[in-house]
Design a protein around this nucleic acid. Sequence first.
DNA 1: CATGCTGATGTGACCGAGTGTCATCACGTA
DNA 2: TACGTGATGACACTCGGTCACATCAGCATG
Lengths: 190, 190
Amino acid sequence: MARWEPDARGRLLHAALDLFAEQGYDATTAAQIAERAGLTKTTLFRQFADKREILFQGQAASVATADAAVRGAPPQAHPLEALRIGLDALAKDHVAEQREIGRRAEAITATSPELQERAAFKRSAISSALAAALAERVEDGVAGVLADIGTRAYYSGFAEWARADGGDLVALVRRHLDDLLRDLRPVLDG
Amino acid sequence: MARWEPDARGRLLHAALDLFAEQGYDATTAAQIAERAGLTKTTLFRQFADKREILFQGQAASVATADAAVRGAPPQAHPLEALRIGLDALAKDHVAEQREIGRRAEAITATSPELQERAAFKRSAISSALAAALAERVEDGVAGVLADIGTRAYYSGFAEWARADGGDLVALVRRHLDDLLRDLRPVLDG
DNA sequence: CATGCTGATGTGACCGAGTGTCATCACGTA
DNA sequence: TACGTGATGACACTCGGTCACATCAGCATG
């Protein structure tokens, strides 16, 4: 038996999702979110570093996931293959329940520059992690570009997964990556 | 004759640069910056949307510059050529005085996650602007990747320009772009 | 010379994010 | 019964940022 209602973070997330949708992000105070979750402002800020972070929890783990997977790829693997392995690991982290959350969070993010800034930061963190891990296999600049391409495939794959009925996120991201590479080659050579 | 000391924004920028370097970003209050610039907190926030923006002024104009230049490229120009034209325009906007400011701002940014977040946002804004303009010439995904590559060349070119004795930023960025493309091709084909 | 308009600034009150300290309280354990 | 532990609440505080209102130099107009 728990002494308090369990899953404080989850309750805060859903309270925030509801309130942001009802009133808008700016008009919602941290105290309101905490109250709806049956907690206080103090506890909210013990769970999350700041108000924005409520919507982006979990993405911190993505950085470690991507880094570990790419570094764990076979040493002789082609850089693109190492990238694929990293993206696979990222995609595997998502379960079906996150589709709905992702959709709602994305809609709210679109209404607030403050949240878009945090989203850009998270994205750049993922790209930087991929780039650093890939830099063990290719020159820095190339590693950066490969990371950019992979991050783009990951995000557009995720967007399609969240939008449509989903299916296999891993396969979707792989397809987005391959499409990107296929379309890119003729332009770079032209 | 001006009624007040001229160049409030410039004075605020230099006051902030000095104070951030002396005390750190977090330990410096907006009121302190305003006071050293001979102004008040209210005026500071009339000049800049928030405390972070003091260090990143001007980068808003970059978005419009990049967008206009790429869209203004000859219709039959190759997408990579349109990208080069956009980067040229971005690079031309910088004068020698910004080298020192850029160096100092970069050092301060490295000490604060809050500032790194804003920097990531600015970078993503530039990349998005390039991507949107390029999307008139190539498919969206490819436009995005080209924009990523161009943004990377722009930033690494700028970093070298700020670090070394400089020289021609336009030429530097072009060289970084060409190097990136040259190194990238064999990896994508491999 | 007087009047009024304009625009950048100052003043002071205010709200909300985020921090820090101390008290509380349910539970496990000696 | 007493004590330790860990998550929570209560409360005060700082600071970023906003807003309404006053001020004041210049300029135009009568």
